[in-house]
């Protein structure tokens, strides 16, 4: 996570402070997020919705991996999920055409930290 730019780390720190949710709740949050993705008030119309869906799918995989594991590992997955869902992150999902690029970087950092570099999406960033 230290490799991420400071503006992203600041948002991550904010999210990390939240109380831990159950995997079930996080899965529901991801599903709600995907359903609302096409709404112009949710994400920039030209943002990479496909990338957002791939991050969501990656988060689901991490959730499955870590459902019965230590809370600190689940907390990391929660950070990836909440960062994705949060609109007003380092690069606003609603205002910026590159709104999901920072979400992908956070996801990649977490996937690597959890030993799943195979889920990384960096190649999507062009």
């Amino acid at each position: 996570m230290q490799s991420l730019p400071p503006e992203i780390r600041a948002v991550v720190a904010r999210i990390e402070a939240a109380s831990l949710c159950s995997p079930v709740e996080l899965r529901q949050e991801l599903r709600d997020f995907e359903h609302g993705l096409d709404r112009p008030d949710r994400a920039h119309p030209f943002a990479d919705h496909e990338l957002a869906r791939r991050i969501a799918a990656g988060c689901q995989t991490l959730l499955e991996d870590h459902t019965n594991h230590a809370p600190e590992r689940l907390r990391l997955v929660q950070v990836a999920v909440r960062y994705l869902i949060l609109d007003d992150d380092a690069e606003s999902d609603r205002e910026s055409i590159l709104g999901f690029d920072d979400d992908a970087r956070v996801f990649d950092a977490i996937a690597r930290a959890l030993g799943r570099p195979d889920l990384c999406l960096g190649d999507h960033l062009g």
Binding site: P45, F46, A47, H49, I97, L98, G126
Partner: peptide, 21 residues
Amino acid sequence: QRRARAAEIGGPLREGMRRLK
């Protein structure tokens, strides 16, 4: 039509923006 347009031009727009960034 709006969605189809977004899908069509979103890629080139993002590519240009990433280059600019």
